[in-house]
Design a protein around this nucleic acid. Structure first.
Lengths: 189, 189
DNA sequence: TACTTTGTACAGTTTTTTCTGTGCGTTCTT
DNA sequence: AAGAACGCACAGAAAAAACTGTACAAAGTA
């Protein structure tokens, strides 16, 4: 408390710049299925010079510690922040994962992969089910036709999810960077 | 109304298979930021043999037509369903976009691209702002150091968003399929 | 062992989102 | 031109999500 006037002015200037970025980042976090306030929390941690405690976050965000706790857990689940150990401190410390490429990959691995896998499973099961029904109702041309139509749709969906699965593989094993390198090709402009 | 018993039994069997798939698809739609019921609506349209009207959707989903209207608009915005014209009918007809690869691409183009672009703009602006502050506070080593730290973070974020932008480009121009072909390589299992 | 401190579970409140019914402008029909 | 059907805007109701304060278990400290 009680910085001298010059420091306070500096602080305000820095704060203004940070605030804009934090809000921009926070606003985009809904792409990751994250609430606005948790997005803000992420932005706060992004600029923190050092790992923060829940209490520090709470006072910065002017929110309850409970909210910080749940917010951090959400971010932790997505591996967007990491728990940090510091000797001497009894409090848990958290900092953002600064490797955003990794964060991107983790997001797909955690959220998309799970969906893809259950979808693939259900589709496979449903196609088997349809095959059974085709045999069962072999005498009913209308039914067989409907079944075949449905199966064709499931087959397409199946192929798509398989593709998505392989796409996520390339995120994870880094092959994606062969196609889209991290460093942009030099620009002549 | 009033199908004969055999048909009803067939219908029930088919319905059961469809229901499972619809619910699975619907459940996953939250990845696209879509509510569960809109996800179900999508699933319903997915299996529809022909384009549907809002009234048909409403009676199938047992929901109000207003909800169908907003749900369809959401899906329309994401280009997950298309409006279809049919001669003679005064009602609007809708059907799902069956090219899921296209849907995937559109999703990123519509939702992610926008975020990426505003982020890039804000980051650029903020970095300029920091450069100004560095000059302004050149006499204050602490301030300058903080500014440099922040700028380094912004620079990293900037590079990441540029990468993301180029990644989405590959979705859109189809280059992604060179890396991850639609048809899976033949499996020897 | 008794005393702190920390993180989170839980219940209740506030805020946001979703859903419905009514009503109106538009378009098609006659 | 009058009438009917359609889709959507809007306001209110219902449902879901986010947030808070309290209370308590776990783990450290004296």
């Amino acid at each position: 408390m009680g910085l001298d006037p010059g420091k306070e002015e500096q602080n305000a200037a820095l704060h203004k710049v940070r605030k804009r970025v934090i809000e921009t980042i926070g606003r985009n976090m809904d792409l990751y299925g994250i609430s606005l306030s948790t997005g803000h929390l992420y932005g706060l941690l992004f600029f923190a010079d050092k790992p923060m405690t829940l209490d520090e976050m709470g006072s910065e965000m002017k929110m309850s510690k409970t909210s910080m706790s749940t917010g951090v857990r959400t971010l932790l689940d997505l591996k967007m922040v990491n728990k940090v150990w510091e000797k001497g401190s009894r409090k848990d410390l958290y900092e953002v994962e600064y490797d955003w490429y990794q964060t991107f990959t983790d997001f797909f691995d955690i959220k998309w992969r799970k969906s893809v896998e259950t979808n693939i499973m259900i589709l496979r099961k449903s196609m088997e089910e349809i095959d059974k029904l085709v045999k069962e109702y072999a005498e009913e041309p209308d039914m067989v036709e409907m079944l075949h139509k449905d199966k064709a749709k499931l087959q397409d969906a199946y192929a798509y999810y398989r593709w998505l699965d392989r796409l996520i593989d390339t995120f994870e094993n880094g092959d994606i960077y062969k196609l889209v390198p991290k460093e942009p090709p030099a620009e002549n402009e």
